[in-house]
Protein backbone atom coordinates (compact mmCIF):
# COMPACT_ATOMS: atom_id res chain seq x y z
CA UNK A 1 0.00 0.00 0.00
CA UNK A 2 2.86 2.37 0.76
CA UNK A 3 4.39 1.34 -2.56
CA UNK A 4 1.31 2.45 -4.50
CA UNK A 5 1.20 5.75 -2.59
CA UNK A 6 4.89 6.31 -3.38
CA UNK A 7 4.22 5.63 -7.07
CA UNK A 8 1.29 8.07 -7.00
CA UNK A 9 3.48 10.76 -5.46
CA UNK A 10 6.22 10.01 -8.01
CA UNK A 11 3.69 10.57 -10.80
CA UNK A 12 2.41 13.81 -9.25
CA UNK A 13 5.86 15.33 -8.83
CA UNK A 14 7.03 14.14 -12.27
CA UNK A 15 3.99 15.76 -13.87
CA UNK A 16 4.70 18.88 -11.83
CA UNK A 17 8.25 18.95 -13.20
CA UNK A 18 6.89 18.82 -16.74
CA UNK A 19 4.57 21.76 -15.97
CA UNK A 20 7.51 23.73 -14.53
CA UNK A 21 9.49 22.96 -17.69
CA UNK A 22 6.63 24.35 -19.78
CA UNK A 23 6.58 27.55 -17.75
CA UNK A 24 10.38 27.76 -17.97
CA UNK A 25 10.27 27.59 -21.76
CA UNK A 26 7.20 29.79 -22.18
CA UNK A 27 7.42 32.29 -19.31
CA UNK A 28 7.14 35.88 -20.50
CA UNK A 29 9.45 37.44 -17.95
CA UNK A 30 12.65 36.64 -16.13
CA UNK A 31 10.78 36.46 -12.82
CA UNK A 32 8.63 33.64 -14.26
CA UNK A 33 11.70 31.71 -15.31
CA UNK A 34 13.35 32.12 -11.91
CA UNK A 35 10.10 31.00 -10.28
CA UNK A 36 9.92 27.93 -12.54
CA UNK A 37 13.52 26.99 -11.73
CA UNK A 38 12.93 27.41 -7.98
CA UNK A 39 9.82 25.22 -8.17
CA UNK A 40 11.79 22.60 -10.12
CA UNK A 41 14.36 22.52 -7.32
CA UNK A 42 11.63 22.00 -4.71
CA UNK A 43 10.05 19.22 -6.78
CA UNK A 44 13.43 17.53 -7.21
CA UNK A 45 13.93 17.61 -3.42
CA UNK A 46 10.57 15.87 -3.02
CA UNK A 47 11.56 13.26 -5.64
CA UNK A 48 14.87 12.53 -3.89
CA UNK A 49 13.14 12.09 -0.51
CA UNK A 50 10.52 9.84 -2.13
CA UNK A 51 13.27 7.70 -3.65
CA UNK A 52 14.81 7.44 -0.19
CA UNK A 53 11.50 6.16 1.23
CA UNK A 54 11.17 3.70 -1.64
CA UNK A 55 14.65 2.31 -1.04
CA UNK A 56 14.14 2.37 2.73
CA UNK A 57 17.40 4.14 3.51
CA UNK A 58 18.31 7.50 5.06
CA UNK A 59 21.27 8.01 2.72
CA UNK A 60 19.52 10.44 0.43
CA UNK A 61 18.81 13.16 3.00
CA UNK A 62 22.26 14.65 2.63
CA UNK A 63 21.69 14.84 -1.11
CA UNK A 64 18.33 16.57 -0.69
CA UNK A 65 19.80 18.96 1.88
CA UNK A 66 22.55 19.90 -0.57
CA UNK A 67 20.04 20.40 -3.39
CA UNK A 68 17.93 22.63 -1.12
CA UNK A 69 20.92 24.81 -0.19
CA UNK A 70 22.21 25.11 -3.75
CA UNK A 71 18.72 25.91 -5.04
CA UNK A 72 18.18 28.67 -2.48
CA UNK A 73 21.58 30.24 -3.08
CA UNK A 74 21.21 30.12 -6.86
CA UNK A 75 17.74 31.69 -6.78
CA UNK A 76 18.86 34.52 -4.51
CA UNK A 77 22.01 35.06 -6.58
CA UNK A 78 20.08 35.29 -9.85
CA UNK A 79 17.53 37.72 -8.36
CA UNK A 80 20.28 39.89 -6.89
CA UNK A 81 22.12 39.89 -10.19
CA UNK A 82 19.03 41.25 -11.92
CA UNK A 83 18.27 43.74 -9.14
CA UNK A 84 21.74 45.13 -8.49
CA UNK A 85 23.93 44.21 -11.43
CA UNK A 86 26.33 42.17 -9.34
CA UNK A 87 26.04 39.49 -6.70
CA UNK A 88 28.60 40.29 -4.01
CA UNK A 89 29.03 43.97 -3.32
Amino acid sequence: MITYAIFFAFGCYGLGLLMNLWRLARGPGRADRILALDTMVINVIALIVLYGIWQGTAVYFEASMLVAMVGFVSTVAYCRFILRGDIIE
Binding site: M1, I2, Y4, A5, I6, F8, A9, G11, C12, Y13, L15, G16, L17, M19, N20, W22, R23, P28, G29, A31, D32, L35, A36, T39, N43, A46, L50, I53
Partner: peptide
Protein backbone atom coordinates in the same frame (compact mmCIF):
# COMPACT_ATOMS: atom_id res chain seq x y z
CA UNK B 1 -2.54 4.04 6.16
CA UNK B 2 -1.15 7.17 7.84
CA UNK B 3 2.05 7.15 5.75
CA UNK B 4 0.10 6.57 2.52
CA UNK B 5 -2.27 9.38 3.45
CA UNK B 6 0.61 11.81 3.91
CA UNK B 7 2.20 10.68 0.63
CA UNK B 8 -1.00 11.05 -1.41
CA UNK B 9 -1.91 14.43 0.11
CA UNK B 10 1.60 15.79 -0.41
CA UNK B 11 1.60 14.56 -4.02
CA UNK B 12 -1.70 16.34 -4.64
CA UNK B 13 -0.37 19.54 -3.07
CA UNK B 14 2.74 19.41 -5.24
CA UNK B 15 0.64 18.83 -8.33
CA UNK B 16 -1.65 21.76 -7.44
CA UNK B 17 1.36 24.02 -6.92
CA UNK B 18 2.89 23.15 -10.27
CA UNK B 19 -0.47 23.34 -12.03
CA UNK B 20 -1.04 26.81 -10.60
CA UNK B 21 2.27 27.83 -12.12
CA UNK B 22 0.89 27.25 -15.62
CA UNK B 23 -2.76 28.06 -14.93
CA UNK B 24 -2.71 31.47 -13.24
CA UNK B 25 -2.65 34.58 -15.39
CA UNK B 26 -0.25 37.09 -13.89
CA UNK B 27 3.26 36.77 -12.52
Amino acid sequence: IVISFFLVVSGLFGLVGSFGLIKLRDT
